[in-house]
Write a protein that binds this DNA or RNA. Structure first.
Lengths: 222, 222
DNA sequence: GTCTGTGAAAGTGTTCACAGCG
DNA sequence: CGCTGTGAACACTTTCACAGAC
C-alpha cells in the first residue's frame, strides 16, 4: 500500500515525534546509523511498530543496514510539517505560561515563541526570557503584528472559552490548551488538550487495579 | 457482557475522567439529572460512546429518564479509584512544579500534594502555597514520612531518569513525568508522560495538512 | 413515548511472519 | 545473511441500530 506522504494515522504521528527526539539524542552522541531495533529501544516502543510507522512516510532505510540518523530525522521533520516556521503565542503568563516560555524543547525544532500575554497589569510589560509580556487587551493586534500562527492557552478555566473564541476570531487555527475545560471550536481549528488532573486520575485507576490483583480474568489469561 | 467493575478499556478510562469533570460542573450549576445526550455534549463526545463507556461500570441510569448527576459522579469516582486518598509528591519546584503545586484541580478530587522537592539550595526551605520545599537529597526520607504514593516529575531531562530510579527504589508505583525523555521503569510501576513539544508537533502536522487541502483520498471520501 | 444499555458491524491500530533488497 | 518493508491475522475502539426498562 503506497501511502507515502499522505494521511499518516494519528497514533503513528504521535510516535513519530518520539522518534524525532530519539534521533536527535543519537545525533548528539555522534551516532550516524541505527537499526530499527536500536531506534525502537531508544524510543521505548517495539521494532515492528516502528517499521510500520516509518513505512507510512516511504522507504528511507537500507535493508541489511538500517537508517541514516540525519536523513531519517530530516524526512520525519518534513512529514510532520516542521520545516515551516511555527510562531507560537502563549496566552497566560502565570507559572505554567512561564514554564512553557522557558521550555527548552520549544525554541528548537521549528517553534518560536513570539508573544506572551497576561491580563494582570502587574505582569504586563515585564520581561520573561527574551519576551515582554503583552496586555491580553491587545491580543488581536499583537498576534497580527507578530504573525503568530499557533497558540497555547495557559489561563484559568473560567476565561478559557472566551479567549479561545478571540483566538479563533483572530485567525489562529492551531490551539494547545492546558485549561481544564471542554472547549468548543469550529471544525477548521485544530485543538489539542493537555490535562494534568486527567493524567493523575488515569494513574490512580491503574494503581488501584495493581493493588487489588487478580480481580479479572484478563490478568490471569496473560 | 457483564464487565461491570472489571477491566475498563484504556480509551474509556480517559473519557471517564472528562465525564467526571462535566458532572462536577453540572452539580455546581445545581443540575440534578442529565440525559446521555446532554452529558455527552458537556463532555464534548457523542452520546453512543458515552453510554458504551458507562455500560462498563454498570447500569446506573434510568431508561426514559437519564442519570442522577450526584450518583453517577460517585460511581465513576469509585470505578476510577478516586475514593482512596492519593498523596502526591512533586519533584522539581521550577515554574512547572510551582504551576502544578498551585493547580486548582489537583487539591480537589482526592489528590493532595504533600511534598515538593528541589535541588536548588536557594529554593529549598522556601514556601510555595502551603508547602515548604524539601531538599531532593532527603527525597527518600520525606517521601516516607509524608506517605507519598504518587509522584510528579517536573525536572530537567538530564536528571529525570536518575530521579525516576530513586522514586521507584523508594517504593513509588505511579509516576507522571513532564520530562521530555523516554524513561525506563520496571513493569510494576505505572508511568505516564505529558510532553508539550510533542503536542505542538502533532498540531503542526494537522495544521500543515489543513493548509494543503485535498491531497489525499480520505478527505474526498467523507 | 423516551432514553438507556448492548450486541453486531465497521473502522482503526498492533502484532506477526516473512518476502525481498542490499 | 541481516534488516527493512509489508500483507495478513489479530485486537481494540467506535459506531450503529434497536431491544427493553421506565
Amino acid at each position: 500500500m503506497d501511502d507515502h506522504g499522505r494521511h499518516i494515522p494519528p497514533a503513528s504521528v504521535a510516535r513519530l515525534t518520539i522518534y524525532l527526539r530519539a534521533l536527535n539524542s543519537l545525533l548528539a552522541e555522534g551516532i550516524e546509523r541505527v537499526s530499527s531495533d536500536e531506534l525502537a529501544d531508544a524510543a521505548g516502543v517495539n521494532s515492528p511498530i516502528l517499521r510500520k510507522d516509518l513505512s507510512h512516510l516511504g522507504s528511507y532505510g537500507t535493508r541489511g543496514v538500517g537508517y541514516d540518523v540525519q536523513y531519517l530525522n530530516r524526512q520525519i521533520s518534513i512529514a510532520l510539517g516542521l520545516t515551516q516556521d511555527w510562531r507560537v503565542g502563549i496566552i497566560g503568563a502565570g507559572n505554567l505560561g512561564r514554564a512553557l516560555a522557558g521550555y527548552p524543547g520549544f525554541g528548537s525544532r521549528g517553534f518560536e515563541i513570539v508573544a506572551l500575554f497576561d491580563a494582570d497589569q502587574l505582569v504586563v510589560g515585564s520581561e520573561i526570557g527574551y519576551l515582554r509580556v503583552s496586555d491580553v487587551e491587545d491580543l488581536e493586534e499583537v498576534l497580527d503584528r507578530t504573525r503568530t500562527n499557533m497558540a497555547v492557552l495557559s489561563v484559568p478555566a473560567t476565561v478559557a472559552q472566551e479567549l479561545c473564541d478571540r483566538l479563533v476570531a483572530a485567525g489562529i487555527r492551531s490551539i494547545l490548551s492546558f485549561a481544564p475545560v471542554v472547549l468548543q471550536v469550529p471544525p477548521h481549528v485544530q485543538l489539542r488538550k493537555v490535562d494534568m488532573s486527567t493524567e493523575l486520575q488515569i494513574l490512580a485507576y491503574h494503581a488501584q487495579r495493581a493493588h487489588e490483583p487478580d480481580l479479572d480474568a484478563v490478568s490471569r489469561a496473560r
